[in-house]
Write a protein that binds this DNA or RNA. Sequence first.
DNA 1: GTTAGCATGTAAGGAGTTACATGATTTT
DNA 2: AAAATCATGTAACTCCTTACATGCTAAC
Lengths: 222, 222
Amino acid sequence: MSRRSGVLEFAVLGLLRESPMHGYELRKRLNTSLGVFRAFSYGSLYPCLKALVQRGWLVEEPSAQPEEQLNPRAQAGSLAGRRAKIVYRLTAEGKEHFEDLLSQTGPDTWEDEHFGVRFAFFGQTSRDVRMRVLEGRRSRLEERLAKMRASLARTRERLDDYTLELQRHGMESVEREVRWLTELIESERKGSERAGQESTRRPARETGSDRPSSGPSDNTDR
Amino acid sequence: MSRRSGVLEFAVLGLLRESPMHGYELRKRLNTSLGVFRAFSYGSLYPCLKALVQRGWLVEEPSAQPEEQLNPRAQAGSLAGRRAKIVYRLTAEGKEHFEDLLSQTGPDTWEDEHFGVRFAFFGQTSRDVRMRVLEGRRSRLEERLAKMRASLARTRERLDDYTLELQRHGMESVEREVRWLTELIESERKGSERAGQESTRRPARETGSDRPSSGPSDNTDR
DNA sequence: GTTAGCATGTAAGGAGTTACATGATTTT
DNA sequence: AAAATCATGTAACTCCTTACATGCTAAC
């Protein structure tokens, strides 16, 4: 009933933080920007939006259609007509809540389902948290590799070629992801050191705006 | 209520086809042999087993505990006691049904959730079907790549570094899987040609036992 | 003037998980 | 005799999808 998910909720808050949007647009962003990893349908998006509104993290704005009003043919039907295109905007509480979520580094943040979306919003995440999430993810994967190697050693001879190939390919993928994470961690560390030289010591604040940001978000639409 | 899944059902039938097992053992196999890709809990396994029994694809065998009966202390409580360890065995109908499933090459067989488990049982799958599944999977991934490239071209400049890196890494993974599939398809084709030379033309039967098999399964337990 | 795409929703259901409950057997 | 691990199960819940229902607007 409550439709408060994990991933979807997180992603919606994160995208709306960048700029207000209506559901349809939001869904497209969800399935391209955060691409590959997950795809959501309206059947989960709209109920999720309603739930977030109820908890006071979003507000619905009936949308006065600023630029599309320019089109003169449209307003013939009815002035307020045109099936209200509901634009959702993050409230102050919503923003606060999202920042809470961003600062979390618990075990599930580096599980498969969550890691992708966490990474997608690393631009808004503090360096400490980024590091913990990356390192957590890496050691999670290394654990998994160890288990796979052990189980492979135990069962190698009674598996047929295809099963074996599947395991091999699976392990290789995990190994590759570990290397990727290692590179990312390295480059975070370098960035950290450079920042350390600049200001001699780390700034005290943990959360939020130590990101250089990609400019003030003036892109309301495509 | 019915608990007839897709992947889980398929995997259970496939593993039980190799040899009868009880639930606990089955679950371990599920989470190692078919490794990386999925993990199942008892909460889904046992109801699934019940459902498969109801449909006549499995039978429960109360398990006379052949070797464990040797242990003399156990039978004190009650002769039929000792919390029946239920061994599940595939029926003739179950086997037939599984072979039907094996021969399917519909669109969902190459989707993410299904492909892994399909591949895991390629040892029992006919060469034609293997080819169709591999090629279907590859073109599915190529489609996805095309979409990703298009969306990346459209949105590159308004994405921050992390989102961009996530996309890049995602695409690279997909590209690697495509290359892997291409190699597999190549090697299937070679095998096919060699088989063609041996018998001049392809054998008529499509399903089942053209596998060399990994020996008669005499391994009931670890 | 009809197809395609934009836009918003709901009801039912599928595929699984978590947490709980129980008890036997093996290892320490 | 305590702890681990084997073994089986159920109820409630989660998170998402499919299929449906509706209507507007743009393009062909």
